[in-house]
Simulated scan of single mutants.
Amino acid sequence: MQVWIYGAHLFHTAPKNVSKQDLQDWNKFVEPVAKDNGSQMNTNVSDNGKVITQFIINSNEANAIQNRIEHMIGGLDTPEDNIHRRKVMYWYQTKFDPNSDTGNKAIIDDLSKTGLKVIFENNAVKEEMLHVDPKFGKPWQELAYIVDVEVQTVRGIPKMYKVLKYYPEHTFDPDA
């Protein structure tokens, strides 16, 4: 894990590869100091006796670190940039035109029960979705697709999906 605490200063955002468990571990690490008013934690990182980095955290700073960590954990519980991975999507309506961005609506029950406008990361994704394997024996608009989407909102209400990735191997007939 990268060290992202320097003194009592936490960066405004955790590194991209930090997990919720990492944050909870850091929270436990500073907890004894945060609970004991007037205490202090001294941590030295050295190499062959030469101090490379030194962390000194007092109880007030430990409390501030814990508050920031809790805020970051809350941020991890919501999808980053409203990106949702591997969601089931089915068409509400669409044009059979890979160059059109109008008239395309889909439903992803996990995110919204109504049909929302759909745009695509690129036309290749849309083209692939509109030409599925004939093994299903159904038209493409009657199938369910597994996609990664970015949800665009207006005043916190989902209004549009941007399909980022399509998983053709997971396409299925929802009635089967």
Rank of each mutant, 00 (worst) to 15 (best):
T43P: 00
V147K: 08
Y6C: 10
N60V: 02
K165N: 07
P158L: 06
I52W: 05
E127T: 14
L143P: 12
D36V: 12
K135R: 15
L23T: 04
V125H: 07
S19I: 06
Q66G: 03
V45W: 13
I56T: 12
L116I: 06
N122A: 12
F29D: 02
V18T: 15
L10V: 04
P168S: 05
I146D: 05
K50S: 09
A8K: 09
G7K: 07
M89W: 06
P174E: 00
D77L: 11
E31Q: 12
K113I: 04
E150W: 01
K95R: 13
W140M: 12
Y166L: 12
E121D: 14
I65K: 02
R86M: 14
P174N: 06
V51E: 10
P32V: 09
M1N: 10
G137F: 01
A144T: 11
V3M: 12
W26E: 03
N27T: 05
Q54F: 01
H170E: 15
K35Y: 07
V149T: 08
N104V: 03
T114C: 03
K35R: 12
A8H: 09
V88Y: 00
E127C: 00
T114A: 10
M72C: 07
G74V: 01
A144C: 15
I83R: 08
F172Q: 08
V151F: 07
Y166A: 09
I108C: 01
A8M: 00
R86P: 00
G137S: 02
K159L: 06
I52P: 00
D173E: 07
K87P: 02
V118M: 09
N37A: 12
I57S: 01
E31C: 00
V125A: 07
G156A: 05
V163P: 09
K159Q: 15
L76I: 14
W4M: 13
G38K: 05
D36K: 14
T13G: 01
I56C: 02
N58T: 08
N42F: 09
R85C: 01
K162G: 00
P139W: 06
A34P: 13
K159Y: 08
E70N: 15
V132H: 03
K87D: 02
Q24M: 11
T78H: 13
N44K: 14
R155W: 05
Y6W: 09
Q141K: 12
K165Q: 08
L111E: 04
G103I: 01
I65C: 07
H170S: 13
T102Q: 13
Q141Y: 14
I83G: 03
E121W: 10
T78W: 09
S46A: 11
N104Q: 11
T13K: 15
Q54L: 02
K113S: 13
K16E: 11
S100R: 05
L164H: 04
N17I: 01
N123C: 07
T102V: 14
I65D: 04
R68W: 05
T114H: 10
A62S: 13
S46R: 09
H84G: 01
I119Q: 01
